[in-house]
Design a protein around this nucleic acid. Sequence first.
DNA 1: ATGGCTTCCGTAAACGTTTACGATTTCATA
DNA 2: TATGAAATCGTAAACGTTTACGGAAGCCAT
Lengths: 344, 344
Amino acid sequence: MSIRDLARHLNISIGTVSRALNGKSDVNPETRERVLLAAKEFGYVPNQSGRSLRQGTTNTIGFMIESSIETADNGGSFFMPVFEGVQSVFRRHQLDLVALLCGTDEDPGAYLNRIVGRRFVDGLIISATMRNDPRITFLLERKIPFVTLGRSATGGQYPWIDLDFEGVAATAVARLLKFGHQRIAIGVPASDINLGYVFVEGYRRALSANGISFDPDLVFPANSNEEGGYRVATAMLAQKQMPTAVILVNENMAIGLYRRFYEAGIHPGRDIAVVGFRESTQSRFLSPTLTCFRISLRDLGIKLAEALLSTMPAFTSNYPQDSIDLVWPMELVPGESDGPWHGT
Amino acid sequence: MSIRDLARHLNISIGTVSRALNGKSDVNPETRERVLLAAKEFGYVPNQSGRSLRQGTTNTIGFMIESSIETADNGGSFFMPVFEGVQSVFRRHQLDLVALLCGTDEDPGAYLNRIVGRRFVDGLIISATMRNDPRITFLLERKIPFVTLGRSATGGQYPWIDLDFEGVAATAVARLLKFGHQRIAIGVPASDINLGYVFVEGYRRALSANGISFDPDLVFPANSNEEGGYRVATAMLAQKQMPTAVILVNENMAIGLYRRFYEAGIHPGRDIAVVGFRESTQSRFLSPTLTCFRISLRDLGIKLAEALLSTMPAFTSNYPQDSIDLVWPMELVPGESDGPWHGT
DNA sequence: ATGGCTTCCGTAAACGTTTACGATTTCATA
DNA sequence: TATGAAATCGTAAACGTTTACGGAAGCCAT
């Protein structure tokens, strides 16, 4: 069922059919009606390859999400709602969104090169941004529209949206200090992911703002999953003077940390204060429920989509290019996992 | 950088370039060498649209995963590893894999129609199969190669791979009976997803095999997330004679159930036995650790890919079509969440 | 020397669209 | 009636590939 068949059936030229379907002005309203009707009747859907070839645009956007061993187990819970939000915007513009997962056995750069080289997508959303991210320089020099979820130290002019990890760390520190805690630990990702730097930077600044000196022994790098949280707790227990509070970079670490403390007979929320990121269905059902930060991932996705569209020539009129760099604020949700310090 | 540019630069025809790149036999080894070298030098990657248009095949496979509200929070942890496995197979055949997430505000049928109509993919992997799944009949009549993750009651001839939920339920029941439990509850998805039927069927059969009559009051339908587990526990607590054991369809429900029992002062593993599905990083770090079932999701993905390839004409020679319907066995991993019954 | 076979390569058509351009008709206006 | 503008539509080229077909050259056996 090609446009040619449709034209033959209607006894008009394929050019007219195409114009009718694409809403061009120079076509009789009556014939347009006939074309649209026939198209619906035969279930005609334009062949994307033919269209792409002619227009040089594929009408699809790629969302590159990581699937590393480290985060494979929990990454999905984060990305799904974001994806939803992105898609809700793109659908309005007839853009299809596909998720691109680079396998762990393939180099992300090579993967990206193949995807981009094939002219597979018109634009890209990049996540899990590294501090030095070769993907960014690659896309910049190829002039492919993209937006990153997570800022980066990589140079160049490109839009990004980032969660306010600095603010999260600062808020958590301030809260714990107010509770009377003095030795506040922090669990950060061991990888080169940029948010780790931002997170610890916020932590450091909040401490110094309150006149507390930064102690590198209180920074615990770990994988950002349950196993990492378990290791953080183990490391904390091994210290001469155990911290009385800990801030974690996600909720999966909290589960592992809870476990280790459970084994040691230490009760989070009573014997030690825990603040995590991010509020989720899980965080509300842990025992104790986790003090964490709320964010609408769907809204985040919407913003991401809009930021990307603002850099794509065909859409830049609808989405002005002002202030596309954005630090996403988050609201603290108190749980049972932290509270006043009543230790020695 | 098109094939034409490449040909011009090498002073040969574009036909020869194409043949050289595609490994056809009728091309001088020496010129092939030159072509390959130049292609690499200029970073030439064939335009997928042009290729698709000519060949009628897109070299991409779609993996349709659901993103419903219910499972958005935990679905990712399941799919990511499966995706990895699928991709590892497809990469060997130069096939690109993309994840297709149908938004919650769009009808899955319409979504599929658009994707298929555009000739976007050569084949599809369908997951979260419903008991009556219109997607299946649609793909069958369109003759699009596909494989489903999860069997279905929908008629027709198509390959599927399913986890052995029937076996899981049976094994769990047998184990709990051996522990002396008599009133064994089961938490099942409230939706029309097919695995719910299979799950409860295995439960029912295992009971009758052991001479225990099936009690519908012990079947608790719920959303398969933390909140659902919480509700199951609440419903259990409300019964005159509370069940002494419960089998859950996933680990997220276990977290919610744990929470509700925690609030009621009831300790899973001591006061009530819990068996969940599926072993994950999480299940090992819950307190108590969850008795559940192990499965290699990556291997599952590999099998899915092979099953799909066996139905695609271009690959059917490498992947024979025998026995593509597969029930995936799973191994029980004992945890702390169940044990002998020492109640009244 | 002729014929036939092999090897290698160029030519051109085809895939399904979109769109610039020109042709035809209509219609109001001078 | 002649003229020009507006409305509508058909024609054909172009996008980047692949591939069927045929031609040219080289080689060997007759």
